[in-house]
Structures are given as structure tokens and as C-alpha cells.
Amino acid sequence: SSQSQGISSSSTSTMPNSSQSSHSSSGTLSSLETVSTQELYSIPEDQEPEDQEPEEPTPAPWARLWALQDGFANLECVNDNYWFGRDKSCEYCFDEPLLKRTDKYRTYSKKHFRIFREVGPKNSYIAYIEDHSGNGTFVNTELVGKGKRRPLNNNSEIALSLSRNKVFVFFDLTVDDQSVYPKALRDEYIMSKTLGSGACGEVKLAFERKTCKKVAIKIISKRKFAIGSAREADPALNVETEIEILKKLNHPCIIKIKNFFDAEDYYIVLELMEGGELFDKVVGNKRLKEATCKLYFYQMLLAVQYLHENGIIHRDLKPENVLLSSQEEDCLIKITDFGHSKILGETSLMRTLCGTPTYLAPEVLVSVGTAGYNRAVDCWSLGVILFICLSGYPPFSEHRTQVSLKDQITSGKYNFIPEVWAEVSEKALDLVKKLLVVDPKARFTTEEALRHPWLQDEDMKRKFQDLLSEENESTALPQVLAQPSTSRKRPREGEAEGAETTKRPAVCAAVL
């Protein structure tokens, strides 16, 4: 046999249950609850290399294929790409003598399909299967379609040439079993990697079954959420508030809700932002270029202005709740996480202390139980975000031990490091100062900020419009641009040419 590394010779191994799959997660993409704000000051410096380099560890398999027929071997997927077919160049070659004697062998292509993985959001991997055969590759009886790919989820059954000719079961060793999710959700989405997690739940990458488009699904544990919100009269209202707010909003710089499922837990389906959180971008770069800050901040102002015009105060604006559309420097941003939002009543007064301390406005800290506050709290938070983006460190921090965090904020005395700000323009610093004003009545509004000289930049605004146009074009394009080929190089076993392929839609398939 010419099988590559990772293939075992026996096809009769006992199949494990899916609970053996491991679970991976990374930083929070968007969480309903406010958790302790991640610290920006503690960015690790590059460490000196050791005298002796450690040995390379043996790579762990990321997936496993269990053979369902004699003549096929099990495969431990270690590499990122595997070709399957009769050709000797394939990493998994159909060359077992037992297999060659079967009637089905002649229906398999020289290069029938490939399984591979690509880097997705949060640097996690996504597994795909890609059909290159004349007679078809099927996943859970659905045709992939020649020249098309679809994501592979845990426990997928792979069939060759005929939908009933099941050859492998695919085990993704990095994700959960699909069966743990409600059927209504599974009918519409293929669940994938964990993108982030918080005290009350997690955010998962998923794929729409009909279109193969990526989405983010925010899962909120009702049990954990009820415990964490025990002081509230009705904890469920917080989730329902977020859903109702998101459904009503329609702005290019605000995250869109696509679906909602109320089962044992809450499942909020949101558009996916491939670039992750602004927080991670700031930490990764230490600070952002001023031109990049301007492009992002302009969009934040437009989003918050839209919220305020619609009578909504976000109340928890922070870099973790600003998501980026891509890994590119120039990209769209979207505001997310409306769990603490407040729809303005007639009095415009709110007395609930919520939000993240580092970003809270002075009037929030001094008015607990005594007075109210209004939309100006969001403008203060925007000032803190702009400060961080321009400088790479927070204006107020618990680690300045000589003054408490509350006193720093209520006095408006931010930590100004001259040598850092020497590289920032006077106009940018002036806008920061106009937003970090203790008196909410004297603080800049979103309208005033948008009129500030720093943002009178036609090149930046043109760039934003171009990015918007690109997004609109990409969302308007159909996901499947061509029909699967019906040509046949070899006959199917026991049926006429093209008899099955043309009847089945290529579900969740995307043209390369």
C-alpha cells in the first residue's frame, strides 16, 4: 500500500463515540455579560531565545476518518491537505487489492476528492471536503458537486459515486458533537469551532446549510445566566432586550441578528466578523496607526449616533465590543453586545450600574441610586476607546495605585505619557480631550465629534464608502454560481449515467 503517514491498516477498528472529540476555545468574540476587562498594560515583551531549542513535538491529529468498508483504511489527519483517489500521487490511494476487485472500484476517479483545513476566524481551523469526481462525492447523502466544497462537521458520513455507498465517517477532533444542539438549529446550521467564551456562554462559528455562508452563533446558558443575574427581577429580559434591539436596528456599522432560537439555552445567530475584536488588534499591534484609528472611530461614531437617534444607549462600549470585518488594516467595524443597552424612556434617566469599570463615565460612578444619566455615557466610553487606539494603553487603570480607579475617572485625570502622545496629531488629542470631559453637559456629542476637524478627511470617508460598496456587492452575490457537472467518465454501479447527480441539489457548496 502507498498510504501516507497516519493511515492504519485495519478497517475493522472499533469506532469511538463522539464524546472523545476535544474542545477548543479562544478569547471572547462577544459576550452578553460584562466580565473583568482584559488588561492592556500587560503586553508581554519578546522573550530571549533559549540556548537549546526544544524538540519539535509530534503533531496531534486534528481529524480521524473511520473506514466503513473492507479495502479502505482508517486515517489520522495530521497534515493540512489529503487527496483521495486511484492515482498513485494521492496521499490516500485507493490501491488495496481487496478494493480493486470490487465492482465499485471502476466508478472512483483518479482524484476523487480531497479533505483539507484552512485558517478561519480567531486563527481556528475549518475542515472542508472538495469534490473532484465525475460520479460524485456525497456528505450525509447530499451531493457536494464537482469543483465545489463544503465544510465537514463531526460525524459526517462520506459516500463515493452513490449516496448509499458510504466509505468513511469523519471525526473532527477539535469540535463538539452536533447532537448536543437543538434540532431546529441543526436543521438550518452546521455548528463548528468555538470563537470565544464568557461567564454565561460562548460564541460558535457555524455555516448556513442552504448557502454555506459563515455566521456566529452566540449561545447563552439559561442556567448560568439565571445564577449570574439572580438580582434582576427577570434575567430573561436581558436576552430578550438584546434580541428586540438587534432586530430593529439596520446600520452597516451595527451587528445584524439573523436568527434566534429559544431552547434549553438561547441561541442568537449573528453575522460573522472575520477580523475578531478591536481589543485583540490593539494588543497585537501595541497601538494602531492614526489613519486606521480615524477610519475605525468614524464608523463607531456613525453607529452610536444611529443608536442615540433611535433612543438607544449602549452602556457597555469597549474594544471587546467592536468587531472587525476582516484581518486587513482597512476594514469595516461593527458594534455588538447589546445586553446592557437601554431604550430611552421619557425621563432619559437610568440608575442601574452596569458596564465595565474602566470605560464607565464619571456620572455613572457618582450617581448610583441618587440620580440618572443619559446618552453622554456612550460618548465618554468612545473617548476611552479612542485614547486606547491612539496610545496603546488605557487612560484609567486600577494599577495606578496612588489613585483609585473611581477617583481617576470622576476627576477626569487620565494617565498622559508625553513621549507616547508625541507621535499623535494635535487634532486627534483634542478630540480625545473633548470626549473625556467629566461634566456630561459639556462633553462632545456624537454629532459634535463628527464635525471635529480631525474627522474632516475626505480620503478616509471615501475609503469607508468603498468598503461599504464591497460589502454590499459580496452579500448580494449568490453563493453557488454554477451547477454541478453531469458529465460521466465512468458508469455508476447499477444505474444510468447522471441518474442521481442531477436530482440532488449541491447543498452548502461554494464554487472555488
Rank of each mutant, 00 (worst) to 15 (best):
I243T: 11
I243Y: 06
I243C: 15
E244S: 13
I245P: 08
L246S: 04
K247Y: 12
K248V: 08
L249S: 03
L249R: 06
N250G: 10
H251F: 01
C253L: 05
I254C: 07
I255S: 05
I255V: 06
K256A: 05
K256S: 04
I257G: 05
K258R: 05
K258G: 09
K258P: 02
F260S: 07
F260W: 12
F260V: 14
D262H: 13
A263E: 11
A263R: 05
E264T: 11
D265Y: 14
Y266H: 15
Y266P: 00
Y267R: 07
Y267G: 01
Y267I: 14
I268D: 11
I268A: 15
I268R: 02
V269N: 13
L270Y: 01
E271Q: 08
M273D: 00
E274L: 11
E277P: 03
E277M: 01
L278Y: 02
L278F: 14
L278S: 01
D280F: 14
K281I: 14
K281H: 09
K281A: 08
K281M: 10
K281Q: 10
V282K: 04
V282M: 12
V283C: 04
V283F: 03
N285L: 08
N285M: 12
K286G: 10
K286H: 06
R287D: 14
R287S: 14
L288P: 07
L288N: 08
K289P: 09
K289E: 14
K289I: 13
E290Q: 10
E290H: 04
A291S: 10
A291D: 09
A291C: 15
C293A: 06
K294H: 07
K294G: 11
K294R: 08
L295W: 12
Y296L: 11
F297G: 06
F297S: 09
Y298W: 08
Q299D: 01
Q299H: 05
M300G: 01
L301I: 06
L302H: 08
A303D: 02
V304A: 13
Q305K: 11
L307K: 00
H308K: 01
H308I: 01
H308G: 02
E309L: 09
E309I: 05
N310R: 12
G311V: 09
G311W: 10
G311S: 03
G311L: 09
I312V: 10
H314S: 02
D316C: 00
L317M: 14
P319G: 03
E320D: 04
N321I: 04
N321K: 02
V322H: 01
L323K: 11
L324D: 00
L324K: 01
S325E: 07
S325Y: 14
E329R: 13
D330I: 11
D330N: 10
L332P: 12
K334V: 05
I335V: 15
I335C: 12
T336G: 05
T336Q: 00
D337C: 04
F338K: 04
F338R: 00
F338P: 02
G339P: 01
K342I: 01
I343H: 15
G345L: 08
T347D: 12
T347I: 13
T347S: 08
S348E: 09
S348L: 14
S348Q: 14
M350D: 01
T352V: 04
T352M: 02
L353G: 04
C354G: 04
C354R: 02
G355F: 01
G355D: 00
T356H: 00
P357R: 15
Y359C: 04
Y359I: 05
Y359F: 11
L360I: 09
L360Y: 12
L360D: 02
A361E: 03
P362F: 07
P362R: 00
E363G: 01
V364S: 03
L365G: 06
V366H: 04
V366D: 04
V366Y: 13
V366T: 04
V366L: 10
S367T: 13
S367G: 13
S367D: 09
V368H: 13
G369F: 15
G369Q: 11
T370F: 12
T370M: 13
A371G: 08
N374M: 03
R375P: 07
V377D: 06
V377Y: 01
W380I: 00
L382T: 04
F387R: 01
C389Y: 03
L390G: 07
G392E: 03
Y393C: 05
S397T: 09
R400K: 10
R400S: 08
V403M: 11
V403S: 06
L405Q: 01
D407G: 06
D407A: 13
Q408C: 00
T410R: 00
Y414I: 10
N415W: 06
N415P: 15
F416C: 10
P418T: 11
W421S: 04
V424R: 15
V424K: 09
E426R: 13
E426W: 12
E426P: 07
K433C: 11
L435S: 00
D439L: 00
P440V: 06
K441Q: 15
K441F: 15
T446K: 02
E447A: 07
E448K: 14
L450T: 06
L450C: 14
P453Q: 08
L455F: 12
L455I: 10
D457E: 14
K463Q: 15
Q465E: 00
D466V: 04
L467F: 08
L468V: 11
E470D: 13
E470S: 01
E470K: 09
E471M: 05
S474L: 01
T475Q: 11
T475R: 08
P478F: 02
Q479K: 10
V480C: 14
L481G: 03
L481Q: 12
A482V: 06
A482L: 15
P484T: 09
S487N: 13
R488G: 05
R488W: 09
K489F: 10
P491I: 14
R492V: 11
G494R: 12
E497L: 08
E497Y: 04
G498V: 05
A499E: 13
A499P: 09
T502P: 00
K503R: 11
R504F: 08
A506G: 10
C508F: 08
A509S: 06
A509D: 06
A509Y: 15
A509L: 14
A510T: 08
V511L: 08
L512D: 14
